[in-house]
Nucleic acid binder design. Structure first.
Lengths: 117, 117
DNA sequence: CCGTATCCCGGCGGATACTG
DNA sequence: CAGTATCCGCCGGGATACGG
């Protein structure tokens, strides 16, 4: 049910929430976070490759959403200081626990999109 | 992976999306939809009771979010024309398929909120 | 009891240009 | 290659009042 706790949870956007469902959806609620997590749940990816895999996203938004996911402890950022620079993004242990959920979500979404055929 | 299809899916907000994960998160992405679905996944509820169960929500927002969920085929609205009026909200068959996902999401959220204890 | 109708504001996200 | 910096428009959502 509502399942409200005594305390409040916090996340990078500093919005306080008591309901864990609200919380989770808020953390993954950015316009591009769904597809980002979807991709990262299958592989580690570099910045520009991520950009290439997500048609329509701007550099700015990709950076912002990745920074939030990082601040929320979902995504890991590994910098290799070569020239040119190389930055690899992957899921943290906590983020990996989201993978099965993302998978279910994709399955549901596919069914939903094909419901009138 | 990105899993983009040839066609596009549509939902009540008339935003076109190709990625089923984006689609699902968008459908459930309103500020209050998470907790609404969480509640409805356990019981059918009348309008005012729903309002009571969701502290902070306004009548306007509750109506709007319910209307969107209804338009997206997630929520069913049953009107009993008594005096005073009685309106009961519940999940559709399609909406019920979201319940296990909501449950996983709640579990993850709880873990997340207690991660520093 | 169950909603609409208005008004209004903050901030998410787009476009574009620049940098280590 | 992997980002910042700046500007700005739009609309999600809050507050409030009214209606069947």
């Amino acid at each position: 049910m509502g399942n409200r706790l005594n305390g409040f949870g916090a996340c990078s956007t500093e919005v306080k929430m008591a309901c864990p469902v609200e919380m989770t959806l808020h953390i993954n609620g950015g316009k591009w976070k769904g597809i980002i997590l979807d991709i990262l749940s299958h592989q580690s990816v570099r910045f520009n490759e991520l950009k290439r895999l997500i048609p329509g996203i701007t550099q700015r938004m990709l950076t912002l959403q990745l920074r939030e996911l990082e601040a929320d402890g979902i995504v890991k950022r590994k910098v290799e200081n070569t020239v040119p620079k190389k930055v690899e993004y992957s899921l943290t242990e906590h983020g990996k626990k989201l993978s099965p959920i993302i998978a279910s979500i994709r399955i549901w979404g596919n069914e939903y999109m094909n419901k009138n055929e």
